[in-house]
Structures are given as structure tokens and as C-alpha cells.
Design a protein around this nucleic acid. Structure first.
Lengths: 235, 235
DNA sequence: GGCACCGTGCGGCGGCGACCGAAGCGTCGC
DNA sequence: GCGACGCTTCGGTCGCCGCCGCACGGTGCC
């Protein structure tokens, strides 16, 4: 019953307005819980500095923490917080062609990330876009007039034993803008369910320590059988 | 082809991390162009300070400017920028019950804003939510499995002479979270078209200097005939 | 119990940036 | 052409905050 408040907006934005805190939140987009020390090393700052940043992010409601023994685990507070970081990151991305210094390792890592990765709790990268496109092509997902599952899409999830939560205020599907592909891919509760199922069925396995995934041979067959996605589309 | 960059994210967030700049962007959510002086008075800072802030927001790509005589008009750069501010503001809103100092004038202004207002380029407030609900109830909009217009919805727009852009990468419909109602309402190209039509037909007219709208008698009849919305639902 | 380790509180340092006032420049109106 | 007006540029001040090193408490391991 009140107009939006500039102070609150500024306070929220200030949480992400520091490069170190921003890097922490981007790292946490993998959906896992990290320890304070891991994040300190990942961002290249001292332990005390990282501790301070994390306290601030928790106090601001962006992160949730959980103490376990002598470790402090933090994760993104909820899907809303994750959605916020995604939105901001997507808007920030349009890099104006600048060729940045790169070495072989970063090229490899970027390439793995571009092929398949998690985006908080759903599948992204070329894989995420390919399956979104395939689902649209097969009439499971309708993008003509919005972004929604069709009846056939609901049936498809049921048929393959992927449970969709009926409950909850969380939207069943949501469009998420991809960093690398510059296209939208499937997010929301259905996107998360599909990602969980893919990991549980070992269609994808984590590659390395980040968010990157590798599609297994088993997974290549599954994607082809279920959605007609050729393995060549994932390279 | 690269992972999201913390520096760019932080730079973008920093644009909104100052209360004065945040207030400026919130004011610009009405979709109009403001002069630098208007924004300076609105935010309560000196002209030189405001000028500095605006330059920074323009340089950051959030605002677009247009010089006209001795005035400098600024507006939100595009719908992406508006979407960003909306998302951030919606997340920032959850005010923890704090009773803030209020006088009669602010109560009146808040009430007008809660009833009907523009949200960048579409209709929001109780009116926006009521028509979104009515369109859903009548099968024009489907929220069961996402957020999309139905065939009947497309026909409804055509039938009432409200042109929907076929072109463009902008999504036809999008769900926007309402500040006051805490519910989603219709945004995207269709929401903008409906808002334009409502203003052109004088179903709503601007009330005061802000984003608030007033539903005319003519408009009350129109909403009832078109979507079965009773006037009592808008009070 | 002793030790290694993870995280936190504190003091201090340095830099960024938000703000203002005054001076300057272009535009509009009489 | 003159003054009024809107905006910008330039110094200068002040407070905030990101960072570190260090000391300390708490936890787990041997």
C-alpha cells in the first residue's frame, strides 16, 4: 500500500555493487552451498574480508547461512534471490566485443560452460537452449503467446516420470535468458524438475568444480529418444 | 562465450546503489521523459548533483537522453532497463511491517497509486491485477502452466481493435509483480498495447503528476462490458 | 591436552563518490 | 541585446566502505 522506496532499492543494489560480493553471488548461482573459506579463495580476498561480505549479504536477505561444525555454509536465500542475480547478470553481460586476455585454460572452461551447465537449479547453456527449442518444436512448450507448457507438455513430464509440483506459488515455467546463447531457456519449477531428473538419471554429470556439466553417452541417447536432440547439436 | 563477469555486474548494480539515483529510476518508471531539473527537485538534491547522477546513468546504459533547447530530457533506455528496475524494486519491497510516518496527503497519494497506475508502459495496481484476473477467468490468458495468451485471447485483442505487434523480440506477454497487490499482472507487448488503448480511449486518465491513473465513468462501463469487471472491484 | 584450522572482531589505512557552491555556457523571452 | 533560466564543469570537503593484519574464540583431530 505504499510506493516503492528508493532507500530500500539502493540498499539491495548496494549488496551487488561490489565486485567481490558480485563474484560471490555469481559463484553461488550453481545452487550449492559454499563455505566462507572457499568463497574467500575464489574471489581472492582475505578471510576476514570475505566474512564481512557474507555477513552483509546474509543480513540483506540475499544469502542464507548454516553453521556446521567449524564451517559456515552459505547459499542463495531462495529462488527469488537467484532470479534477481540472474536478471542482473543477464543485463550486465552485453560485452561490447572487447577481446579480453585469454589463455588456453579459460577458453576450455568457457567452452565447457557454454555447452552445458546449471543455472541455479535448471539446465542452461547450449543444452538448455536445445531442449527448450526441441520442446517448443514438439508442441510441449508454447512460446508464441508467452511462455507456457501445453497439455502435451504436461503429459510428457508425467509420461517420463518427472514429478511436477502442483503446489506452491512458484511459477511452473519461466523464461530465463542465457548468458552465452543469448536465447531464453526453460526455468521455473518444471525446469528445476527436469534438471534434477537429468542429474539423478546420470544424463549429465558435473564437470570440474564449477557449474559446468558433461553430457554422458547414456544422456546423449536419452535426449535423442526423448526430444530428438542430436548429439551434434551439443558440440 | 564467457562466464558472467563480476565487475560488470557490480558496475550495473552500483548505478542503482545510491538512494538518489534509485529514486530517479523509480520516478522514470512512469515511462515518461523527465527533465534534469524536475528530477533534481523530486529527489531533493542540487542541480549539479543531479546532472552528475544522470550522466552516470546514461553512460551505464540505463537511461537515454535527448537534448531539447535548454532542457535535458531523460527516460529509461528500453524495456529491458525498465524490467530491471521493476525486478529490483519488487524484490526490495517486502517492508517488515514497519509503520512509517504518514500524513493525509501521502495516504491519499498511496491510495490513488494502489487503485490504478502505469508500471512503465502497462497497467498496474488494483486495476491491472483485476483485468489480469478477469482475462484469466474468461480463458483469454492461461496461468496454469506459465503465462500466455490463449487463442481466445488473441481473438479478443483483434476483436476490440487493439493491435498486437507481430514482430519484435519482445515477449508478447510477461508477468510483472505488483508492488501493492503482491500479485502478478499482465506486462509485455500485449500489456503495453492494452495500456495505450485504454489511455487513447480515455478509459483511464492521468491523475496528478505521478503514475497514478483515474478510471473514468466511461472506463468503468468499458471494463464491465469487455471483461465483466465491476466498478466496486476498483475501490 | 595440544595442535591445526576455520571463522570473527577490531584498528587503521586508502580511495571512491555524493554533495555543494560558484563560475561558465548555451538557450529562450522580452 | 539583455536578463532569466536550465544545465554543466570544477574544486573541495566529508563520510563511507573495502581491504588487510593481527589477535582471539570455537571446533575437530590425534
Amino acid at each position: 500500500m505504499h510506493a516503492p522506496d528508493g532507500n530500500r532499492l539502493a540498499a539491495l543494489a548496494a549488496l551487488l555493487a561490489d565486485p567481490t560480493r558480485a563474484r560471490m553471488c555469481l559463484a553461488l548461482l550453481d545452487g550449492r552451498a559454499w563455505t566462507a573459506g572457499e568463497l574467500a579463495r575464489h574471489t581472492g580476498v582475505g578471510a576476514s574480508t570475505a566474512s564481512d561480505h557474507l555477513s552483509r549479504l546474509v543480513r540483506g536477505g540475499l544469502l542464507a547461512q548454516q553453521r556446521q561444525g567449524r564451517h559456515r555454509y552459505v547459499r542463495l536465500a531462495d529462488t527469488r534471490a537467484a532470479h534477481l542475480v540472474e536478471t542482473l547478470a543477464a543485463q550486465a553481460e552485453p560485452t561490447p566485443v572487447g577481446e579480453r586476455p585469454r589463455n588456453l585454460r579459460t577458453v576450455r572452461a568457457d567452452r565447457a560452460l557454454a555447452l552445458a551447465r546449471t543455472c541455479y537449479d535448471h539446465l542452461a547453456g547450449r543444452l538448455g537452449c536445445a531442449l527448450t527449442e526441441a520442446m517448443t518444436h514438439r508442441g510441449l512448450l508454447c512460446q508464441d503467446t508467452g511462455f507456457a507448457l501445453t497439455d502435451a507438455g504436461l503429459a510428457w513430464f508425467a509420461e517420463h516420470g518427472i514429478p511436477l509440483p502442483r503446489t506452491g506459488r512458484r511459477p511452473l515455467v519461466r523464461a530465463c535468458l542465457d548468458f552465452t546463447e543469448r536465447r531464453t531457456h526453460l526455468a521455473g519449477a518444471a525446469g528445476a524438475a527436469l534438471c534434477r531428473h537429468a542429474l539423478a538419471s546420470h544424463w549429465c554429470v558435473p564437470a570440474g568444480t564449477g557449474r559446468a556439466l558433461r553430457v554422458t553417452d547414456h544422456g546423449e541417447r536419452a535426449w535423442r529418444e526423448l526430444l530428438g536432440i542430436e548429439a551434434s547439436a551439443l558440440r
